[in-house]
Computed example of a mutant assay.
Amino acid sequence: MENAIEVKGLLKSYGKLEVLKGVDFSVGRGSIFALLGSNGAGKTTVVRILSTLLKPDGGTATVNGFEVQAEPAKVRGSISLTGQFAAVDEVLTGRENLILVGKLRRVGHPGQVADDLLTRFGLTDAGGRRVGTYSGGMRRRLDIAMSLIGNPPVIFLDEPTTGLDPEARLEVWKEIQELAGGGTTVLLTTQYLEEAEKLADRIAILHQGTIIVSGTLAELRAMLPPAQVEYVERQPTLEEIFLAIIGNGAQR
């Protein structure tokens, strides 16, 4: 599969602090790639470099076939970035946010594009309301919808479910899966192991400035000793209990 992202030997330091110490990975087109790491591991630094917001100290990176440092304008025309906090205007309505971005990106018929995205992301009924009245999950869905305007082939999602409740997280997961299903390449950074397990085609673990392991979930599991079969009573997780109760309550 042709790669949408290629990173080789990426370096970045802030004074004496080495954040990236030679990062290497590639992301296939139309796939979901999860970059795992604890706080301070350098995940956001990688995303900022790939999205041309930060210059590396060394190494090379290409996005959609364009070299990040040599062709930044072409890279920016190929991507969309959704950060840890929803970049929405709370004074505007959801529809007005989408139309504004559509006009900035010079797409044809921005009103129709906005309406189509509101429908796709289940926000039609809320489209005429000020975003300041939205829940966290609704804001995040609107934020991702805004990132799709112009049909960018590559999307960076930097910890997209941070601070969301379990129900909202599942909504966002569904949208991310649908993006990849439609051919969009998704680079996802997260601290949540379950999130990477549920979504990613390939996973890389960034630790102390380098990628220490990379592969599919099956490949990563194969690195550990075979699991021992034990027969234990499985109790539902708190998340399962929460979602079951919310679901039952919605039906009453």
Rank of each mutant, 00 (worst) to 15 (best):
Q228S: 10
Y134F: 06
I212G: 14
I205F: 08
D158G: 12
G132D: 08
R140S: 03
T210Y: 03
I155K: 12
L187H: 12
L179M: 07
K198Y: 10
P225E: 11
M223W: 09
G122L: 13
I144Q: 13
V213L: 00
A145Q: 11
E178Y: 09
L170W: 12
A180H: 06
T189I: 03
E171P: 00
A196F: 05
A222I: 12
L217R: 07
H207G: 04
V172W: 04
M223L: 11
Q228T: 00
M138P: 05
S214Y: 03
G150N: 08
T133F: 00
V213G: 00
H207A: 07
A145P: 02
V172I: 01
A145H: 10
V154M: 14
G183R: 09
T119C: 08
T119R: 15
L148M: 15
G136L: 13
P153Y: 02
Y231S: 07
E195Q: 11
Q208N: 14
A204Q: 03
M138I: 13
L164E: 11
P153M: 01
T184R: 15
Y192K: 05
P226E: 10
Q191S: 02
A180F: 11
V172M: 05
V213N: 05
M146Y: 09
I211K: 01
V213M: 04
A126F: 03
D125F: 12
Y192W: 00
P226L: 02
V172R: 06
L170M: 15
I155P: 13
V186M: 00
G127D: 03
V131G: 06
R139I: 04
V229S: 14
L179Y: 05
N151Q: 15
P166L: 08
T133K: 10
D201R: 10
T124Q: 09
E195D: 09
E167M: 14
L220I: 04
S147N: 09
R120K: 10
R221P: 06
A200R: 06
T124S: 02
A145E: 08
V154K: 12
G183W: 12
I149Q: 03
P225G: 11
A196H: 03
Q208E: 15
A218F: 01
Q228M: 07
G181Y: 11
D201K: 02
D125T: 10
E175R: 14
K198G: 05
T184A: 15
G163K: 10
D143G: 00
E171G: 12
L148P: 02
G132V: 03
L179T: 08
V229F: 11
L199V: 00
S135F: 14
V131S: 01
G122H: 15
L224T: 15
L220P: 02
K198I: 01
W173D: 07
P160L: 06
L142K: 13
L179G: 04
L217G: 03
R140D: 10
S214H: 08
A222R: 07
T210E: 00
A180W: 06
V229E: 15
I203W: 00
A227W: 12
L188H: 12
E219N: 10
L164F: 15
G137L: 13
L148G: 05
G150T: 09
A222T: 10
A204M: 04
R221G: 03
L123E: 06
A126H: 11
I203E: 07
E178P: 01
D165L: 12
